[in-house]
């Protein structure tokens, strides 16, 4: 009875040690994944609020008038891939645009852009 426990204990001790070492080696452990809204607000990530008002979200505090407000997005972009493409590289539709090419320049990952698209679609 006591033998399997010893095995399990030893094995988990090993794993624990290994895990500790691993986490020490990779100092920057990723935190919880940010939501679409968080990505849209974070000025180090999407920073949508710098240029777009979002009247549909009471938490979106901004005074900006640089770019069109994000409202009725599902109606404005019935084709989801168009909206994704606009966030990925807006210079393709307007060479003078001030909107950063979030996908092309690696500012956001594909997963992150999809989360932002989901969030923006709800506005």
């Amino acid at each position: 009875m006591e033998k399997p426990i010893a095995i399990v204990t030893a094995a988990s001790l090993s794993l624990l040690l290994a895990a500790t070492f691993m986490s020490a080696a990779r100092a920057a452990a990723p935190g919880p994944e940010p939501s679409g809204q968080e990505l849209a607000f974070d000025n180090r990530k999407g920073n949508c609020l710098a240029c777009h008002a979002m009247p549909g979200d009471p938490k979106a505090v901004t005074s900006t008038n640089v770019a069109p407000p994000l409202v009725g997005m599902a109606a404005r972009f019935p084709d989801r891939s168009k909206l994704y493409g606009q966030i990925w590289d807006a210079t393709r539709s307007n060479p003078d645009t001030a909107m950063p090419p979030f996908g092309k320049n690696g500012i956001l990952t594909d997963t992150e852009i999809n989360k932002v698209v989901d969030y923006v679609y709800g506005l």
Partner: peptide, 8 residues
């Protein structure tokens, strides 16, 4: 068990 510990 000992082996595992040593190996770890």
């Amino acid at each position: 068990a000992i082996g595992l510990l040593v190996w770890g």
